[in-house]
Design a protein around this nucleic acid. Structure first.
Ligand SMILES: [Zn+2]
Ligand SMILES: [Zn+2]
Ligand SMILES: [Zn+2]
Ligand SMILES: [Zn+2]
Lengths: 139, 139
DNA sequence: TTCGTTGTGTTATTCTATAACGTGTGGCAT
DNA sequence: ATGCCACACGTTATAGAATAACACAACGAA
C-alpha cells in the first residue's frame, strides 16, 4: 500500500517523465536535469531502474525511451501501485505526435498466459507495443 | 509468391541467422562475417533492413537482436511469405538458453485490432515479446 | 547511351547502456 | 560507541547499437 519514499534523484527523473507528453530517452532526461546537478547517464539509469522496478515508470522497448505509468491509482488485477507490481500492459504509440496510450486487456493477458502454460513457459516480463498513428494525426 | 532474389550480403546475413539457435546482434553478425569480407556495421544493418522488410527476419526489440523467421512456409491470415508481408507475431524468449519461439494468435490480433479500431488508431507495426524461462531451463 | 535506382564500401559520428571504482550516510547488531 | 552492512550517490571510462555522409559500381528502362 505504502509506496516507498522516492529518493531525490528518483523524484527528479519521475518529474521529467510526468511532465513530458511523449516518451523520453535517458539522455534527454539527463540533459533536462543538468541544472539540478545531473552529470552522468548512470544517475538517470539508476533512478529509472528503481522507478521501473516500483512500477511507476515503463520502458518502451521499441523506442529506447521511458514514460511515467499512466495507471498510478488503478488496481485492477494486480495493476496499480498498491500491490507493488504491475500487470501486463500494452502501449499504443503514435509515430507522429509521440503520444502514448497505456492500457491492459484481460483477454490478451489470458491468451498469452494460456500459451505459456500450455508450453510450460514461465513468463517474467511481457512487452506489447503498437506503433502507428493516433486519430488526431491521421487525415 | 516469388520471393525476390537475395543479394550476396543479404544471403550471408540470413545464413548467420538461420544457423544460429538464439537471436543474434548486428555486431555479432558483423564479427561472424568478417571472413566473408564484411567490414562495417552498415553492411549488416542494410541487409537486415531488407530481410525484415521482406518478412524473412525479425528484430527482437527487447534484445536489440535479430532472428530468422520461423514461418517461412506458412500462409495463414497473411502470414508466411507468399504474400509479401507478415501478420502480427509474438515471440517467447527464454532468458536462460536464448531459444525463441515465434507464434501468432488470432485472438490476440483481433483484440489489439479491436482496441485500435475503437480509438481510431491505425497500427503500423506491433511488437509482442514474452521474456521468461522455457520448460527445459526451469527446475 | 543516358539516366535513375539499387546495392555496395568506407569513415566518422551519434546515441544507448554498463563497468569499475570510490564516497557518504543511516540503520543495526555487538 | 564501534564496527558492519546496505544503499544511494558521484565520476570516469568503456562497451554496444545505430545512423550520417559521401563515393562508386552494376543494372535496367527509356
Ligand atoms: Zn503502468
Ligand atoms: Zn499522434
Ligand atoms: Zn516470422
Ligand atoms: Zn531455455
Amino acid at each position: 500500500m505504502n509506496t516507498p519514499t522516492l529518493t531525490k534523484n528518483q523524484t527528479l527523473v519521475l518529474d521529467v517523465l510526468t511532465r513530458s507528453e511523449a516518451p523520453v530517452s535517458a539522455y534527454t532526461i539527463l540533459d533536462k536535469l543538468r541544472d539540478q546537478g545531473f552529470r552522468a547517464p548512470l544517475q538517470v539509469y539508476r533512478a529509472l531502474d528503481k522507478l521501473i522496478e516500483m512500477g511507476i515508470a515503463h520502458r518502451l522497448e521499441s523506442l529506447n525511451s521511458f514514460v511515467a505509468c499512466a495507471h498510478a491509482n488503478e488496481s485492477c488485477c494486480g495493476h496499480g501501485h498498491g500491490h507493488g507490481h504491475h500487470g501486463t500492459v500494452a502501449f499504443a504509440i503514435c509515430e507522429s505526435c509521440g503520444q502514448v496510450n497505456e492500457f491492459h486487456d484481460h483477454a490478451i493477458d489470458d491468451r498469452l498466459n494460456g500459451w505459456a502454460k500450455d508450453r510450460k513457459f514461465k513468463p517474467s516480463k511481457t512487452t506489447i507495443e503498437i506503433r502507428g498513428l493516433c486519430e488526431a494525426c491521421m487525415h
